[in-house]
Design a protein around this nucleic acid. Structure first.
Length: 636
DNA sequence: ATAGGGTTAG
């Protein structure tokens, strides 16, 4: 992308020196300006400012043509001190009434996060209020400084003043629509664009597409995308990232393929989106292809891409490769550390995760809420209870970070696993933020481990208030009743599910095969090999029986009717599919929720029969099944 | 010659 930059840089230097030294006369202001313009055009802003300072020392005086370039450089580098200095020079040279300079000043202050200064300039100059460009600069400034309501107010003021609105006005305003509550306004902007004939502009369309994604409507974004007769790289990237951010991983892969077919060359931004979906799907082969593509095509592997690779390899079970990339990074940022810490946590290697976290702190990186989620969940999976609690209290005390529901969720899980159930319950009751379903769900899960029916019922009541349609919780409590031989409880769950007309477990599983990912949901019959899959599952049940083990898990037998309502679990279908197609010695199955007890036992027994190593990644961690043994007993 | 805009990770 920016590969040729260093050479250009040298060339420019040479050119500059040549031009300044060739003619023994001192260069005129306009020749300084030409050089400044070239540097700004090529994004060499540091060089630009250096040149400007050089100019100040020369006999040539800066003029109205000098400032826009110099200001642009300060703005791009977000250097308010240098910007304010330039402002002084502007006044000293009497250029402050020049509209171009005024606009550049407004824009500079906005980019340096000093919107107040920008507004003051705007208000104090009567002519600014007549100029589209000044409004545009300030409107986009408000938007970029998260002051959308001010941007909208100024937009209204602009229209009342009768100042012409153009496509750049829309480009400044549209990105302010960032949440579903802005959708209606965003759509009205879209209409406005169409009516005033501004909609054919490629950038405006890219902007609208992104706006729909951020407002939560991927469908409308896709409709925009499909309606664009000419698509640029940014168009494809915006759509791919849109799918990726909304977890529509298979759509990402389809679109990426389509993009390649249409002859558009992906760049780093594209591949970041693709890697993120490979991570979600456990599609390591596709992810590896992406890595090879980076090496072959000479795309600069920037920190975004490296972090994407670390995350992809960690979540596909290849910690060795993830670690190698991490170790090879010269400048590791917070995201890099979070990705690798999360990777070790998911693999049950909490000690290493904790060591890495401490190392990160030592290198002077300030942690945020997300990296605390990684390290806290790593502690809970490895039973590092006290260590986890230390970190939890450290959050607020040392870093002023208020724990959110997701942190409480980790701590409830941590205390729960350690059998400190009442402590966990008290913690929930003392929470400063409203507990969500996951928090009570964690307590419910802990009650299963420690067979506490009474507390389980309490947690269940709370969780079901918050997530009444999540069938996983009904099954979980039913399993708890089942283990306690509480037949009444089991049937109560059955009735509740029936009455509430809850049907399918929303869970799904993925397997990668021949460079494609195959999706299964519970009770799925849409796969072309469905008949063979069910036949193989029957055969496996038979083989398990021949081992002298029960055909079905005891719990599953008691819950038979309940399970049959849910359909065959997605994990079982995915495993049968993988075996049927000889995916390999090691089979990776991705489950979007938690692996349940029934499947856990089933997979364990199957790994005894077939010469295969199963790796299941669920919502929280990796489970390795081999020769009838599993690496952990962590399931719902 | 001179001002205003869109896509990226945990």
């Amino acid at each position: 992308m920016m590969r040729s930059k260093p050479t250009l840089h040298c060339t420019n230097r040479l050119l500059l020196n040549l031009q300044i030294n060739r003619n023994n006369t001192t260069p005129s202001s306009s020749s300084w300006n030409t050089q400044l313009r070239e540097l700004a055009k090529q994004g060499q802003y540091e060089e630009g400012l250096r040149l400007y300072r050089q100019m100040l020392r020369s006999p040539a005086a800066p003029n109205a043509f000098t400032f826009p370039f110099a200001l642009k450089s300060s703005a791009a580098l977000s250097l308010p001190t240098s910007g304010e200095q330039l402002h002084c020079h502007v006044i000293k040279t009497g250029c402050h009434d020049e509209p171009f300079v005024q606009t550049a000043l407004i824009s500079m202050y906005c980019k340096c996060c000093l919107v107040g200064n920008a507004r003051k300039l705007f208000d104090e100059s009567p002519q600014s209020k007549q100029l589209t460009v000044c409004y545009n600069a300030l409107i986009s400034g408000y938007t970029q400084n998260s002051q959308f309501s001010n941007a909208v107010a100024l937009f209204c003021q602009m229209r009342l003043a009768g100042v012409a609105v153009n496509s750049v006005t829309m480009l400044g305003l549209t990105p302010g629509c960032t949440s579903p509550m802005h959708l209606v306004f965003g759509m009205s902007l879209h209409c406005c664009n169409v009516k005033s004939g501004l909609a054919s502009d490629l950038s405006a369309q890219n902007c609208l597409l992104t706006m729909y994604v951020r407002c939560g409507s991927v469908e409308l974004a896709r409709r925009c995308f499909d309606g664009m007769p000419e698509k640029g790289l940014i168009t494809w990237n915006a759509m791919i990232s849109g799918y990726s951010q909304n977890g529509l991983a298979t759509h990402v892969l389809d679109l990426y393929r389509e993009m390649e077919l249409s002859g558009i060359c992906p760049d780093a931004v594209t591949l970041v989106g693709v890697l993120s979906c490979c991570a979600n799907l456990g599609a390591q082969k596709i992810g590896r292809e992406v890595e090879q593509k980076i090496e072959r095509s000479g795309i600069v592997c920037n920190s975004f891409l490296k972090n994407g690779l670390i995350n992809m390899y960690s979540r596909c079970g290849n910690l060795v490769r993830a670690r190698a990339i991490f170790d090879g990074m010269r400048e590791k940022n917070l995201v890099s550390w979070t990705a690798i810490i999360g990777g070790y946590g998911m693999h049950g290697q909490g000690e290493i995760a904790v060591q890495l976290f401490d190392e990160m702190i030592r290198t002077g990186i300030r942690p945020d809420g997300t990296v605390f989620v990684s390290v806290l969940s790593a502690c809970s999976h490895t039973g590092l209870t006290d260590k986890g609690l230390d970190y939890f209290y450290m959050m607020e005390r040392n870093y002023g970070l208020l724990p959110g529901a997701e942190h409480y969720c980790c701590i409830v899980d941590l205390l729960g696993r350690a059998g400190r159930l009442q402590e966990a319950r008290k913690l929930i009751e003392s929470m400063s933020v409203e507990p969500d379903g996951a928090v009570w769900g964690a307590l419910l899960g802990a009650c299963k481990i420690h067979k506490d029916v009474e507390l389980a019922e309490l947690a269940f009541d709370r969780v079901i208030e918050l997530e009444p349609t999540n069938t996983g919780y009904y099954v979980l409590l039913s399993n708890i009743y089942s283990e306690a031989k509480n037949i009444w409880g089991v049937s109560r769950m059955r009735v509740m599910i029936k009455e509430r007309k809850l049907k399918k477990d929303p869970g799904c599983s993925y397997v990668e095969y021949k460079g494609k990912t195959h999706l299964f949901v519970a009770g799925d019959k849409s796969n072309p090999q469905t008949a063979e899959i069910y036949k193989l599952l029957d055969k496996l049940e038979g083989l398990i029986l021949a081992l002298g083990r029960p055909t079905k898990h005891e719990i599953e037998r008691r819950n038979e009717e309940l399970i049959s309502r849910m359909g065959v679990h997605s994990e079982k279908l995915a495993i049968a599919f993988a075996l049927l197609n000889s995916v390999g010695k090691e089979i990776l199955v991705i489950k979007n929720l938690r692996v349940c007890g029934d499947c856990h036992l089933f997979i364990k027994l199957v790994s005894k029969i077939v010469d295969c190593h199963f790796v299941v990644r669920d919502a929280t961690r990796f489970h390795h099944f081999k020769n009838g043994v599993c690496s952990c007993n962590d399931y719902w």
